[in-house]
């Protein structure tokens, strides 16, 4: 197994870290030197202090929990629905032809455009967040699954046919593993999009979570706290992406893109 190229060069990691430190330093210096007003951009040290206060606040952890609940629940619903619909539509040519234009019409509708609808239906509860998250994440998964189903190798298909594999065996042992790399990409994209929509819903609609806490901090002039919460949201996105990539590598250990050089 060859590790990814970026990990083989310790220099690259050091350079990345230096860039991050540079950013933190810039944010520290800009308001202190008066180039930017500290009212809008507090120095790093103050943001970090606000962050420490947040981490000791139980309300913060509750908000984080709410955001993660909306994210995880929405993502789970979207993935299950996307995979089931994708396998069904993708393996029945009639359904595929019948739904193609509808999917192309519905998919580009930005999830945020559904905010008024979500409020009408669910008010400011978890339901609103879920509607937006599921809508945004569902298409990511569905479209990838549809591509994946189409990608069955002709020789693999002939092999399955020549050995009389039944419908279930073909779905389970041929179609699903073939589509899995696509499914994983879809899930990874959906996981990121789901977080964006979860926080957007909380921020705009005011359903409980990190987003509404950011909004509250902003309206009460607690600017360092607001930045601290934004940093948390960013870190959350980073962690989610890392976790998704790890799951992807584990699940696709057999795939060309992951397995690297053959071991003899």
């Amino acid at each position: 197994m060859t590790p990814p190229p970026s990990a083989t060069r310790p220099g690259a990691a050091a350079l990345g870290l230096a860039g991050l430190l540079g950013l933190l330093l810039t944010v520290e210096v800009l308001p202190r030197s008066g180039v930017v007003s500290a009212d809008y951009l507090p120095p790093t040290s103050r943001i970090v202090r606000a962050l420490a206060v947040e981490l000791n606040d139980r309300a913060f952890w509750r908000a984080l929990g709410d955001t993660l609940t909306g994210w995880a629940l929405g993502l789970a619903i979207a993935v299950v629905a996307g995979v089931v619909a994708g396998v069904l539509i993708g393996s029945v040519p009639f359904l595929r032809a019948a739904t193609a234009s509808t999917i192309e019409f519905l998919r580009p509708i930005p999830s945020v455009a559904l905010i008024p609808l979500a409020v009408l239906l669910f008010g400011t509860g978890l339901g609103s967040t879920l509607l937006l998250v599921v809508y945004a994440a569902f298409w990511q998964v569905l479209v990838q699954v549809l591509y994946g189903i189409q990608d069955v190798d002709p020789v693999t298909r002939d092999t399955a046919r020549s050995y009389n594999l039944g419908t279930w065996a073909r779905v389970r042992h041929v179609l699903w593993p073939t589509a899995l790399p696509y499914v994983m990409t879809g899930v990874r994209l959906a996981a990121s999009v789901a977080l964006i929509l979860a926080i957007t819903a909380e921020l705009v609609i005011g359903s409980p979570g990190l987003g509404s806490r950011i909004a509250v901090a902003q309206t009460s002039q607690a600017v360092p706290e607001m930045y601290a919460l934004i940093m948390i949201a960013g870190l959350l996105g980073l962690l989610i992406n890392l976790a998704a990539r790890t799951v992807e590598r584990r699940a696709l250990f057999w795939h060309q893109s992951v397995r690297g050089e053959a071991v003899l």
Partner: peptide, 28 residues
Amino acid sequence: MAVVFQEYSRSLFPWMRVRDNVELPLRQ
């Protein structure tokens, strides 16, 4: 009838161990 294809790497399923590849048709 059984067929052995030229493209062995595409005819075998990379997500299954050798034993499972051989066993799969028998499960049918």
